[in-house]
Design a protein around this nucleic acid. Structure first.
Lengths: 202, 202
DNA sequence: TTGCTTTTGACAGTTACTCTCATTTCATGG
DNA sequence: CCATGAAATGAGAGTAACTGTCAAAAGCAA
């Protein structure tokens, strides 16, 4: 029988992981991403370089920690069942946004700064968005009583993520900016209305 | 005065570039992407490793050569002006697809094989798709007589690319497969119809 | 304490990529 | 055809992100 993970060991691991992330982000902010070596991070976090790679498979992974997808999915599930899918997603996004603490908010801003400057990170983030299409498609299908791999649900999810990315020039990560949240909301409204063009429509 | 680039030098450069790409793709196919070193490619193409990096900034860039975006944009421009934007894109995609030679077709298939296997490459390809949103948004705005940075056009473009990516599990690169072209077409049809869910609609 | 497992550190090795500098190769005006 | 300048190449040294191995140390159970 394996015992539940609740000992001193687990606590230490969590603390080490957090320390690595904190020091890394600080150094990235101070010196830039490329100029910061893994050795420097390891030294700042008081671990050996080997240990760094045991916690994060690559240097990039320190920055990539998308904790928000599950929250959004949960929020979509919580929306009234009769709401059309795109409206449900809009409403869910607003709900999640309201729940973010100023503290988390600032940490996200820091991540954004790094993202914006480093093309490789943007590329990997993009890949994550593509992966999140599956999540959105799943919950959309679930609400509509369709099989989880329904083609129409996938296309809808893809359109939602695509519209969102296009509306936020800096990627969905920038969603936490209230102004960008407004643009995102407007983009989904357009999508729900069949993507009309031009200034018309009071 | 600078002279037009048409001498022996340019021809040689083009040939070297092509040679690198050819040998690289062959080696990737034979041994896998990660197992193929830049030194091996250089040796196969009969150049020095230094020269490799003068032609391609990174090893990834050898695989990433998206020559199709401009073709699609041109084809969209050639569509009748009264076609609604999504219909114009659908029609343009069909036109471009018809023009691809079996030879190019096979080369694309080879690229796909490498893509599928290598996550880093998928990530970078994704980034290219994001970049191509700008292109699509531009031509859509142009056809509608809107400013090139029109928000609605951007959202529409994002939704189109997003829907396309979601419809083709292997990315837009797999578009050259006729079956996938059909799925892509169906996805855009759904998008044009306002993203309805369920089997309804004869 | 005595064993067992997990985590860690030290170290060596590979490879992508950068920089510098001397040499060669092409272009051109006389 | 030759001299001069510009561009392309090759050689080599250096950096840094990873990988793998192995022995020491730290938490865990009896």
């Amino acid at each position: 029988m394996t015992t539940l993970p609740t000992g001193l060991r687990e606590r230490k691991k969590a603390r080490t992981r957090a320390a690595i992330r904190e020091h890394a982000m600080r150094l990235f902010d101070e010196q830039g991403y490329a100029a910061t070596t893994v050795d420097q991070i390891a030294e700042a976090a008081d671990i050996s370089p080997s240990t760094f790679f045991r916690y994060f498979p690559t240097k990039e992974d320190v920055v990539l920690a998308d904790d928000y997808d599950p929250l959004v999915i949960e929020a979509v599930r919580a929306q009234p069942a009769d709401l059309p899918p795109i409206e449900a997603i809009r409403s869910a996004l607003r709900d999640v946004f309201r729940k973010v603490s100023p503290q988390e908010w600032e940490r996200e801003r820091a991540r954004q700064r790094v993202y914006l400057a480093v093309p490789e990170l943007r590329a990997r983030a993009m890949q994550q968005y593509a992966d999140s299409v599956d999540l959105v498609a799943g919950v959309v299908a679930e609400r509509a009583g369709l099989p989880p791999d329904d083609f129409g649900a996938r296309v809808l999810a893809g359109a939602v993520i695509g519209a969102a990315l296009a509306a936020l020039p800096d990627g969905i990560a920038s969603m936490l900016d209230p102004m960008d949240l407004k643009r995102l909301d407007r983009a989904l409204e357009l999508l729900g209305d069949g993507l009309p063009l031009g200034p018309g429509r009071g």
